[in-house]
């Protein structure tokens, strides 16, 4: 996780950061899953599912932006 952060901080280009962010989201999803296991509560798992569904959009919109910027 820290490695992701370092990538994020260093950049150097925008796609780097975006990818880092995306990876970060994945890590968050994973950590939530673990968390939900430790507390034995299913409710937390739903959060992970939701997050996994929308994480896609974040990356997509950044891609969209980069796309547009290059035009």
């Amino acid at each position: 996780m820290l490695l992701v952060i370092i990538r994020f901080l260093k950049g150097p280009t925008l796609p780097d950061r975006v990818t880092a962010f995306d990876l970060f989201t994945t890590l968050v999803i994973a950590s939530i899953a673990i968390f939900s296991l430790t507390w034995e509560n299913v409710n937390f798992l739903d959060v992970a599912v939701v997050l996994s569904l929308i994480a896609f959009l974040g990356a997509l919109s950044f891609a969209y932006y980069i796309f547009k910027r290059k035009d």
């Binding site: 959060v47 939701v50 997050l51 929308i54 994480a55 959009l57 974040g58 919109s61 950044f62 969209y64 932006y65 547009k68 910027r69």
Partner: peptide, 16 residues
Amino acid sequence: FLVETLTIVLFVLTLN
């Protein structure tokens, strides 16, 4: 999570 994502997407959309 949802609102955050949506706000950021909105932001990015208007960024240009």
